[in-house]
Amino acid sequence: MNTTERLGWSRNEMAQKAAQDIPDGSYVNLGIGMPELIADHVPAGIEVIYHTENGLLGMGPVPEKGQEDIELINAGKKYVTAINGASFFHHADSFTMIRGGHLDISILGALQVCEKGDLANWSTGKPGAIPAVGGAMDLVAGVKNVWVITDHNTKDGQFKLVNNCSFPLTGKGVVDRVYTNLAIIEITEEGLKVREMAPGVTFDYLQEKTEPKLLQ
């Protein structure tokens, strides 16, 4: 197996797939990293309000060079803008939105997702690693729909879709859907159900790259 091969959708195509599934009028929290790309791909005519847990509802795109405000940032501590109609609030209100079930969709990265929807995305548990959790545990505990966007396998070819997470959990039974470079997979009561495969990916190939048994 060539462990560096990366078949299927590009990162932008993955982001586009996820963006196309966001219903008009949704309140959405995008995690740090690949989830941030999704905002660039929301189709015209669809209005999505982005929440960032450090206290902004109505986050807009990255500012033009020279227009940055050091105190207008997102959860990844990158400079952002505020749309017309945005609001600022303190952290307890921000997590009232999250834990109180007011946000529609949370899209996160992952280290591992298991077939029951358990998510591990904050710590490899390795000695010497600095554990940092941020808002991930609150997001998966409170947001109605939790989607994961991630490469299908690790860089060295390990499974990321696993029977049981070996890394410390972020939440148990919380993930509803996974977007990878190979496929879009729903987490159902029966197991992992393949909704769509990237061009050139066969079911057998996808199964080979996935630890739990897949359902067609």
């Binding site: 847990e53 303190h90 952290h91 307890a92 921000s94 997590f95 999250i98 834990r99 959790v133 941020g134 808002g135 991930a136 545990m137 609150d138 505990a141 409170g142």
Partner: peptide, 23 residues
């Protein structure tokens, strides 16, 4: 967790000694 941190601070300031959270 960030939301638990925020709520622990909020509770401390609001005279609430403890609370239950799903996070």
């Amino acid at each position: 967790p960030q939301g638990t941190l925020a709520e622990r601070i909020r509770a401390g300031g609001a005279g609430i000694p403890a609370f239950y959270t799903p996070s």
